[in-house]
Design a binder for these strands. Structure first.
Lengths: 317, 317
DNA sequence: TTGTAGGCGTTATCAA
DNA sequence: TTGATAACGCCTACAA
């Protein structure tokens, strides 16, 4: 692999001139600049990032801290990761995955944190000195990236109402975190606005639990009913329940999910859902973080994505 | 962050002694060694890997080259990645994700390659000079990690035969790669051994396509029938087909999947499947690769995992 | 067994 | 505008 010196020798200039052409090209005369570019190309020069990291006291490593259990890891994450990785690669950073079990965080230039619970702030997050970006809304003032959860749930609830169903149950995940509270709010407010009674049922994020719960409800129910779910996984469970009882989707039972990553398409019928642009959001996490690092840890604010309603056969024919 | 010099100063020894305690502890007297350990602990010393990388002409970066389309990315990958990441972190390497679209591979110490097609050998793989490990069997002599695909399909086919069903169809993925050929072989040989007619149907790895195909078959069929599928995704499609036609699983129709990552548990009923220990396999990929790097690219051979038959309600009650 | 000198590839600083 | 020098943190080679 060619080094700065190789390029310098070939162009018959000093190493510094080459370095300048790379970092402050405007400080170099056009003539030499062209000469250096030519040599770089010929030698196929790529800067050695270890050396750069050393001078700048950087690691060029970003850690992704996944605080959710591996068990609950949904397809979801792969997309987040893909987004993050694409952006990091472009800016010559690399990635390390850290889970709750890794006891020590180790060296890095910054962190992206996801799957965080309330208690993690004190135990983990507040001890970190590196810049960080959270994936998922929070009320503690940390910079974050998320979709507008409340708006999403409003959209999907209104969609059901517009299709002539007034009995709407909410199936959510039993977890006291902001993203969940926002989704509940979105549902609740929409229902109250129409003078309808919100019915909220929280459970573990498992398709089998959702199925079990929904079967109980459907056995007693005799009118048209809808389940708006806070995840596609719960949505799939409800679909199974309806099918087991021989009910028609969407005529007897309407079902919606949330996420729009993979599972919505696996369901049969496919799920109406709120799609989160996860890959995009991953890229944004990385972008924000790298900018934050470049700006010496300055606050970057939040990035809140507009949710997208994907209408499928679980609510319409 | 503390450096070698800091530790040396604190322990009142030279930098070299500290370096030796880390890399060749046996060359240092017990007395000094303890002193140095103590100082390291007190200063919370962690070696600067950029500096190490620089001296050793390493990058400390491993790339994971994912040649499959993002679209077909299954939950599967997250587990592979998790395994790889755990091992890399322990050995102070970091990771970069590269997809087909990244035009240049860039600097790294080694690669793990997955989702490769026949044509990629010439176009991509053969141009790489870094050590590499493939995830997935191949006949070109590259070191790889995989599950015994043939054995897995034999196990699951025999399982069906033992449960009194002789009409067994194979649903596979329409892709001419070794892993698929092995799974087909496993099915074919088991059937032939019992003098039964193998029936092989290849299609895109999509639950909806599998459902479509299975419905066609089931409409004409009037005996007990089983579908052994080459992925859980196909298996889910067959389950949907049976349900749409009001058939009972497993009494009328038996279904099996392959992979045992996430989707098998989402299905209702849960799928009998061949579980691949993906996290473990990911760790092994990383381990093999790092060893290969340490041994200057020496051939490491293959690691073939025993498949595990997970019996669930899609074949038994 | 321990320490000194030099170098890995890059960049900031200062001098020309 | 350009170049020489020193420094980043660590390790190899050699010397004591």
């Amino acid at each position: 692999m060619a080094t700065l010196s190789d390029v310098a020798r070939k162009a018959v200039v000093s190493k510094m001139t080459v370095s300048r052409v790379i970092n402050h090209p405007e400080q170099v005369s056009a003539e030499l600049r062209q000469l250096v570019y030519k040599s770089m190309k010929e030698l196929n020069y790529v800067p050695n990032s270890a050396a750069q990291a050393l001078v700048h006291n950087r690691t060029q490593v970003i850690k992704l801290l996944i605080l959710e259990e591996m068990d609950t890891t949904e397809p979801y994450y792969m997309n987040l990761l893909a987004g993050i990785a694409i952006e990091l690669d472009q800016r010559h950073y690399s990635l390390q995955l850290v889970t709750r079990s890794s006891h020590t965080i180790g060296r890095c230039d910054g962190l992206i944190v996801t799957g965080m619970r309330e208690t993690d702030y004190d135990h983990i997050i507040s001890h970190l000195e590196q810049p960080l970006i959270l994936f998922g809304e929070n009320k503690k003032g940390y910079d974050y990236v998320d979709v507008d959860n409340k708006k999403g749930m409003q959209m999907v609830t209104e969609h059901i109402l517009n299709h002539g169903c007034q009995k709407i149950l909410f199936y959510g995940i039993e977890i006291d975190e902001p993203f969940m509270r926002s989704r509940i709010e979105g549902y609740e407010e929409t229902m109250k606005m129409k003078q309808l009674l919100p019915q909220i049922n929280l459970m573990k994020n498992s398709s089998h639990i959702a199925q079990f719960e929904a079967e109980k409800v459907l056995q007693k129910n005799h009118e048209r009913i809808a389940f708006v779910c806070a995840s596609d996984r719960l949505g799939i469970g409800v679909v199974h329940a309806a099918q087991r009882l021989g009910l028609n989707i969407p005529d007897d039972v309407m079902v919606t999910g949330f996420d729009g990553v993979f599972l919505d398409r696996i369901a049969q019928p496919k799920l109406t859902t709120i799609r989160q642009p996860i890959v995009e959001m991953g890229k944004t996490c990385a972008k924000l973080l790298l900018d934050k690092i470049d700006q010496d840890g300055m606050k970057q604010g939040n990035r809140i994505y507009k949710p997208e309603l994907i209408i499928r056969n679980s609510t319409t024919t």
